[in-house]
Design a protein around this nucleic acid. Sequence first.
RNA 1: GGGGAGUUUCCCGAGCGGUCAAAGGGGUCAGACUGUAAAUCUGAUGGCUAUGCCUUCGCAGGUUCGAAUCCUGCACUCCCCA
Length: 426
Amino acid sequence: MTDSLLDDFRDRGLLHQSTDANELRGWLSSPGRRVYAGFDPTADSLHVGHLVALVLLRRVAAAGHEPVALLGGATGMIGDPSGRSEERNLLSPEELAANVAAVERQIRSVLATAGSTVHVVNNADWMRGVGYLEFLRDVGKHVPLSQMLGKDSVKSRLERDGGLSYTEFSYMLLQAWDFVHLSDALDCRVQIGGSDQWGNITAGIELGRRLRSRDLHGITCPLLTKSDGTKMGKTASGAVWLDPKRTSPYRFFQYWMNLDDHDAGVCLRRLTELPMEEITALDQNRGENAAARHTQQRLAEELTRLVHGDDGLTSAKQATAVFFGGDVEGLAEATLIEIFAEVPSHAFALSAVDNDGLPLVEALQATGLAASRSQARRTIEQGGAYVNNRRIQDAAYCLTKNDLAGRQVVVLRSGKKSYALARFTG
RNA sequence: GGGGAGUUUCCCGAGCGGUCAAAGGGGUCAGACUGUAAAUCUGAUGGCUAUGCCUUCGCAGGUUCGAAUCCUGCACUCCCCA
């Protein structure tokens, strides 16, 4: 079990590059080895792009080793130029501190069930006290400029108009020093990351050799991309976040449900912990019975549970049932409000629904489902308007007390997927 | 500084005195089909208290019964020569 980490990565398509495989295997052949991956706190939440690294750490734990998650409290002050085309804006120390705290919570939560001792460290803790001159003498002196200039991350930026600043150029020194420090402090000798991290990882390995005559190792995994060329984890409305306040469990679930077949297969391998037998079975099922979309279903379930827990998964599935044609009328007011929490809503006076009622056209416009009354009218006439999931085709239709689902809510919908809530309060 | 071309509705782009809310394409929104997919097909696409009314064709004036279309001035963009 313990030496299978590399094979496991390879089988699941998680292996892009690594340092000498035999040496790696050798070091990993004893249990309890520490392996690290870094996370820069560029926002107050991680997103789907970070999921790969988190899952890698879980696999490290599953293989009998101890994952180390490094928070970039210090490196986040600088900004990693790898894989970026432009200079980053600096974060204020306050923002950064808040981000570190939030990201740490997420990392701990995802790794909580990893089944091994988990280390979470912050490089600000050892960087803070280091003076500039000291750093240049102790670290900078051992890193040849030719080596730094040779890195892809640097080269590609130098060839561009924007270039890069000395600050970002120095980033790799900090990350290299992190690696050496962790090898000192935790005897952590393997760093894993996305393929864009290769340059930074090898910089650390090189520094370890020069400074400590120590063998450090690195593994990178391919970056997740979708078959249509867009970035994994990005939607038209932005990134898919792990924080439920930014991306609700329902939308998180739906993101995976909507992947195309090939991408879903890839994600199933790389991101879930389902045994390979089940994955192979799902591959086969996908070929024979693609319409059932078992792969997407399993993927969405596994990842939603991993990130949002059982409760999150339950609410995501409940919402899914309603959003895909389920009956609205039978639901309790509280459930209804929870399910539609993320959907745009608009408050009307309860009296609007008296007597003749509120024209549907007006409700559609006010809730933002239609840009104008004219458009609302069109939508209705073309059969795209629904009240509580029942199609309404009369443009003159008015909402009355009879339409209230629950005590004060009417569920409006335009087309297949756009929902909005009209709330009627006294 | 001199000469030329242009500025049209979300975008590209036709229109060059009435039939222009303005062709065509893209996008977007609905519908059908479907696997909550892709592709395809259909319809719609300035606003409104709606068989009519109001506002749009760089900006401001003018000619005309009538202007996106003609004239004058201004602004901006592009190209060529200094």
